[in-house]
Simulated assay, not measured.
Amino acid sequence: MRPIGPISARDSTGAAGCNRQGWFVGIDPGDCPHNPLAYTAEHLKGRIRLPQETSKTGSGLPGLGALVRSLLAAREPLALLLDFDGTLARICDRPGDARPEPAALTALNRMSADTPIAIVSGRGLDDLQTLIAIPRATFFGSHGQEARFPGGQTINPFGESAPELGQLRGRIAAVAREFAGSWIEEKPQALVLHYRNLRDQGKLPDLRRRIQILAGEFPELSMMAGRKVFEFVPAAAPGKGGAVQWYLDRLDPGGNAPRIPVYFGDDVSDEGAFAAVDPLGIGVLVARRTRPTAAGYRLSGVNEVAAALTLLARWNAR
């Protein structure tokens, strides 16, 4: 049986779980052993405590300690579904610079032998898989419009790209040229205007108005406002929520091997996925600040996601 090793993350109260060594999130400080490595998975079970009402995260949602307790106490096996940017990898000014947290990637690869894992991203599928390697995982790109299975088979679950994206390309490129610092990203089934590096932030209201005008001229497309982006996708696209539901329906079509779906995501585009796993599963918002959400838990950032996955992987390997 493997012992639980050191974890550096902190729970939602801001205090390390074991205040002498900082070994395990959510353990009562009075339970610290002289040798923290003596903690086995069985020893930890039942000792992970929910944060008190006064120590919940700012959104009123329980945080890391409560989430870990819920995951370890699950009566059925899990299925893990995760966004990439802002969840497994920090947001970067240039999307190509993003890299997954090494601890999170290690944990997911360890669990993938017996736990279904899906990465659900707004990135194009090929782009996504150049940044994260989990051979046994299923990958969804372009908000679920592209899917690739562990064997390499690639499909478009919800049909081909809308031709209107091609018609929009020149129009939105002209807008980007007008607003210095913004730039266009072309995905297989989406067009994205990034404005994180907009040189004159005072022009942001004007940029929003221009994008809204374009959205009105292309009713066959939907415009999604994300984290410093405006993204156009086919109006018929189901979004991440539809992709998650599609995946879960095929994960156990006969209903003979139920699993508890757990979805981690940081953006407004993840709200559909939180709704898709409710009420049988768990939605985990990854956000430093509060906002309305359908998720039941909140982690403050990618470090806490990595900590939760690491603890879960060690428990899974007991």
Score class of each variant (00 low, 15 high):
S222K: 15
L82K: 00
W246G: 02
A9R: 05
R20D: 03
L67Y: 09
A118D: 05
M224R: 13
E42C: 00
D28T: 07
A147V: 14
E271M: 04
F158G: 00
T115M: 11
R318D: 14
Y195L: 11
F149Y: 13
C92G: 01
P238V: 05
G144I: 10
G272Y: 06
A16K: 11
G151F: 00
Q167K: 10
L82R: 01
E101D: 15
G181N: 08
P6L: 14
V277M: 11
G60S: 05
P157R: 11
G166A: 08
Q129G: 02
G124L: 12
R2N: 11
F218I: 12
P6D: 08
A16G: 05
Y247T: 00
Y297G: 07
A243W: 05
V286Q: 02
V277Y: 10
G272N: 06
F139G: 03
E231T: 09
S59K: 01
G86C: 08
R49K: 08
P188Q: 09
G58N: 08
R171W: 01
A9W: 00
H43D: 15
Q129F: 00
P234V: 01
V229P: 06
L280Q: 13
I213E: 15
L105A: 15
F140K: 13
G22R: 11
G159Y: 06
I4C: 05
P292A: 14
G86Y: 04
S112F: 02
D97A: 14
G122C: 05
L128M: 03
G272C: 05
A294K: 13
I213H: 13
Q201E: 15
E217L: 12
A276I: 08
G17M: 01
V305L: 10
D206S: 12
G22E: 06
R177A: 13
G60C: 06
S59P: 08
W183H: 14
Q52Y: 04
A162M: 00
L61W: 07
A107N: 12
D114L: 09
A9F: 00
T54V: 07
K45V: 08
V229C: 05
T13N: 01
D31T: 00
L72C: 01
A235V: 01
D266S: 05
A306D: 08
I213A: 14
S182H: 06
G124W: 10
I7T: 07
L221I: 06
R318N: 10
A295P: 04
A173H: 10
S121F: 06
L299C: 07
G14M: 04
H43L: 08
E186H: 13
N109S: 09
F274M: 10
L204H: 10
T293C: 04
P29V: 07
G296K: 10
G63C: 07
P157C: 07
E220S: 15
R289E: 15
I4V: 13
D114N: 14
A215N: 12
C18I: 06
G239V: 06
D28M: 00
P188C: 09
P292C: 04
A74M: 03
L193W: 02
N197T: 15
